[in-house]
C-alpha cells in the first residue's frame, strides 16, 4: 500500500484536530456541573445562569460592543479616505509619509501602540485639558487608529481592482468629484468596506493589550474582565461565555456564507 497516499490526509486530520479540540472541550465543559473545569460532574446549565447574573461581565460586554461599533465606524471612514487618497491621487506632498503611517500599525507590537498612545493622552490632558481622564473615548481613538490600517489595506486592493473607466465616464458626463465618489466609487467598494468594518469590529472586540493601557476606571472592556478572571485560574462561566461567542460566530458565518452563495447565483 502507498504510504505517501496516507501521509497528507493523516497530517491534515491531525492539524484540524489540533485546531478544534480545544474549542470543542471549551464548549463541552461549559455544560459541566462541577466547578472543576476538567472533571465531568454531570450535565448542567448553571454556569450560563451565573454568567447572566454577573453584572461586571455584562457591563463590560456592553462597553466592548459600544467601543467596537464606534471604533469600527471611525476606522472605516479614516481607512476609506486614506485608501482613496493613496490610490486615486497621483502624487502629493506627504504621500510617502501617509503610506508609511498606514502600513506601520500592521507590524507594530500591541504593547508599543498601547503605551505610546497612553503617554500621548496623558501629555495631551496636561497640555490641553482633553481627553479628561481615560475611558471609553480614549479606547475608541486607540482602536480606530490601529483598525484603520486594516481597513485601508482592504479598501486599497478593491480600489485598485475596480474599473476606473466608470469614474471617468461619470466625470465626462459632468459629475463633480464628490458626486463621482458617492454615486460611483462608494457603491462599488461597499462590499470591501463592509468586510473591513467587520474585521475592525472583531479586532476591537478582541483587543486586550491596547485597551488595558488606554482604558480608565468604569470602562473595562470584556477582554480585560476575562483576562483578570482567567489569570486566577480556570472558571466555568468563562467557558459558558466562550460557547455563546462561538455560537454567535457560527450563526454569523453561516448567514454570510448563504448570502454570498445567493449573490454568486445571481451573477
Amino acid at each position: 500500500m502507498n504510504l505517501r497516499g496516507y501521509f497528507l490526509p493523516v497530517v491534515a486530520t491531525l492539524g484540524f484536530v489540533f485546531l478544534y479540540a480545544p474549542i470543542v472541550s471549551l464548549v463541552v465543559f461549559s455544560f459541566n456541573e462541577s466547578r472543576l473545569v476538567t472533571v465531568w460532574g454531570g450535565f448542567s446549565t448553571r454556569w450560563y445562569g451565573e454568567l447572566l447574573r454577573d453584572g461586571q461581565m455584562l457591563s463590560a460586554a456592553w462597553v466592548s460592543l459600544k467601543v467596537a461599533t464606534l471604533s469600527a465606524t471611525l476606522a472605516t471612514v479614516i481607512g476609506t479616505l486614506a485608501a482613496f487618497t493613496l490610490t486615486r491621487f497621483a502624487r502629493f506632498r506627504g504621500k510617502l509619509l501617509l503610506t508609511g503611517m498606514v502600513t506601520a500599525p500592521l507590524v507594530m507590537p500591541e504593547v508599543i501602540t498601547g503605551l505610546s498612545l497612553l503617554l500621548l493622552f496623558v501629555t495631551m490632558e496636561n497640555m490641553l485639558g482633553w481627553p479628561a481622564g481615560r475611558g471609553l473615548t480614549t479606547v475608541v481613538i486607540a482602536h480606530a487608529t490601529f483598525c484603520a490600517a486594516y481597513v485601508t489595506v482592504i479598501a486599497q486592493s478593491r480600489l485598485r481592482d475596480m474599473d476606473e473607466s466608470l469614474e471617468e465616464a461619470a466625470r465626462d458626463l459632468g459629475a463633480g468629484p464628490v458626486r463621482v465618489f458617492f454615486d460611483i466609487t462608494l457603491p462599488v467598494i461597499t462590499p470591501a468596506l463592509i468586510s473591513g468594518w467587520l474585521l475592525a469590529f472583531t479586532l476591537s472586540l478582541d483587543d486586550l493589550v491596547v485597551a488595558s493601557f488606554v482604558s480608565g476606571p468604569g470602562a473595562s472592556t470584556l477582554p480585560m474582565v476575562i483576562f483578570s478572571k482567567v489569570r486566577l485560574g480556570v472558571s466555568p462561566d468563562v467557558n459558558a461565555l466562550a460557547t455563546i461567542i462561538i455560537v454567535i460566530v457560527a450563526i454569523a458565518v453561516t448567514i454570510a456564507g448563504l448570502l454570498l452563495r445567493r449573490q454568486h447565483k445571481k451573477y
Binding site: S25, L208, I245
Partner: peptide, 26 residues
C-alpha cells in the same frame, strides 16, 4: 473556512482553552 473560523472567535478565549488542556489535572 474551517481554518479561518477560529480567527473570528476570541483570541483570549482560545488561549484560555489551552489552560484547560495543559493543566496538571487537565
Amino acid at each position: 473556512l474551517l481554518v479561518i473560523l477560529p480567527f473570528w472567535t476570541s483570541f483570549l478565549l482560545r488561549v484560555y482553552a489551552w489552560i484547560g488542556f495543559l493543566r496538571r489535572d487537565g
